[in-house]
């Protein structure tokens, strides 16, 4: 076969396509096919070029696994959980009205809003205009969750549900920092 007419194995290209977003699928697969045909096969031969191509596919795996699948689903599930917990906490504070309930309601409503925004992807859109919103929301969650966890650990009565909610808040905050909008 002449130079520049060879292409990577079809199954490998199909695999690569699965790892890419719609935004980049066509162009990245095209770029790598070009590189394979014009450079990799010419310089290394077919077998090593195939291995080179597999290595390139592998380089997309961590991002795909972490950002699009595991992380996205985890963030969605945790956001739903913290949203439900925050609504429940705000309601209970309003009903019971223990001392300092006003501030706790503000925190609970803030958590609910951040979680709701995360669930419906609004933070992703806001992020395109400024990273600050995502960071602010995430740091607030980490702060509230961390403080609740420490106070509960030091308290005379250890309450399991507080630990679960506070850990969920911290994890959600960390995932928000690590994730990015992938609307394209």
């Amino acid at each position: 076969m002449s130079r520049g007419t060879q292409s990577p194995p079809r199954w490998a290209e199909a695999l690569l396509e699965q790892l890419l977003s719609a935004h980049e699928r066509e162009t990245v697969v095209g770029d790598l096919r070009e590189e394979y045909a014009e450079s990799a096969v010419v310089q290394r031969g077919r077998l090593l070029a195939d291995l080179w191509y597999l290595r390139q596919i592998w380089s997309f795996v961590p991002r795909r696994l972490f950002q699009n699948r595991i992380e996205g689903k985890m963030l969605q599930a945790i956001s739903f959980f913290t949203f439900a917990c925050a609504c429940w906490l705000a309601t209970m504070e309003m009903v019971l009205r223990h001392p300092g309930y006003g501030l706790r309601i503000v925190f609970a409503v803030s958590i609910a809003l951040i979680s709701l925004a995360t669930m419906i992807g609004r933070l992703g859109h806001v992020e395109r205009r400024g990273e600050g919103w995502r960071w602010a929301g995430a740091l607030l969650l980490i702060g509230i969750g961390g403080q609740a966890f420490l106070r509960n650990v030091r308290a005379a009565h250890f309450e399991g549900f507080v630990v679960v909610i506070s850990v969920a808040l911290v994890v959600q905050g960390v995932l928000m920092v690590m994730s990015r909008s992938r609307t394209a």
Binding site: G4, T5, S7, S21, H23, E24, E26, T27, V29, G30, D31, R33, E34, A37, E38, E127, R128, E131, R180, S181
Partner: peptide, 25 residues
Amino acid sequence: DRLEARGLVSSRLAEGTPVRGGRAR
């Protein structure tokens, strides 16, 4: 991808070539 999401680069599509299987650049 990250730089584009942050608004540091912009991109445009252009026609592909036969060696790319017609895929856009």
